[in-house]
Computed example of a mutant assay.
Amino acid sequence: MKVLVPVKRVVDYNVKIRVKPDGSGVDVANVKFSMNPFDEIAVEEAIRLKEAGKATEVVLVTIGPAKADETLRSGMAIGADRGIHVKTDELVEPLAVAKILAKIVAEEAPGLVILGKQAIDDDSNQTGQMLAALLGWGQGTFASKVEITEGSVDVTREVDGGLQTVTLKLPAVVTTDLRLNEPRYASLPNIIKAKKKEVAAKTPADYGVDITPRLEVLKTAEPPARKAGIKVGSVPELLEKLKTAGVL
């Protein structure tokens, strides 16, 4: 079974985000980029499926600028077999991403698509669900456990009330949550080997997908500074403060 793993290049989660003075967006000049953390978990899970004999090939896909090639190479350094880079310098919204991925799925015919539940830059949490809808496949979102069985996949999901396990017929789409696994570090020999692995260069036009934005960002602003708290002398006073604030 082939596993397809879409990955995204985002500002590293350790970087403190700065908003441009004119409010037009986030300042990304001279900041560190890395693979979206949820996608790292997806890559790790795909590699584990391959190591367990459940998958035969792991193919990574990324959509973004030329530098996104580094994101693919980092995934291949921990065990992915090859990559597909859909090159564009434009911002690609979730629906357009899903449409491109649907075209790639039609070409690659994977048995499973596994990707992060959301990207930490836009936090849309839409691509996996949209892709499943376009393909007409079953979907298991927010996965904290994935088990491949004969012709199906059992996905344990994190929901408000605890855990829910769903069984999906393959092929299917699975999105990963933080507690699914802990991604491994790439070794130096594997980093070197990854530089020689195959990466196919494509463009959105190759798949006939219009990536023109459907949304307009009016303004970007930093969240307001948190106000200082106050100390209370007793539980009754605390309850009174909470009632006054409308919390109780």
Rank of each mutant, 00 (worst) to 15 (best):
V159A: 02
L163H: 05
V155I: 15
R157D: 10
G136E: 10
R157L: 14
W137G: 10
L163I: 03
V166A: 02
G162I: 08
T149F: 12
W137N: 09
W137S: 07
R157T: 13
G140F: 01
G140Y: 06
T141I: 13
A172N: 10
A172K: 00
V146S: 04
V155H: 01
T149I: 14
P171R: 00
T149Y: 05
G162H: 12
K145N: 11
L163K: 11
D160L: 09
E150W: 09
R157P: 11
S144V: 15
D154M: 13
E147D: 14
G162N: 08
E147K: 05
G162R: 06
G161M: 12
R157V: 13
V173N: 00
T149S: 07
T141M: 10
K169P: 02
G161T: 14
V153A: 12
G151P: 03
E158W: 06
E150K: 08
S152I: 09
W137R: 01
Q139F: 12
E147C: 07
K145W: 10
L168I: 04
W137I: 12
E158F: 03
F142T: 14
E158Q: 13
K169D: 12
E150A: 14
Q164S: 08
F142N: 09
E150N: 11
T167H: 15
Q139D: 05
T165N: 07
V173Q: 03
E158P: 04
I148L: 13
W137Q: 03
E150C: 10
V166S: 02
E147N: 07
E150V: 11
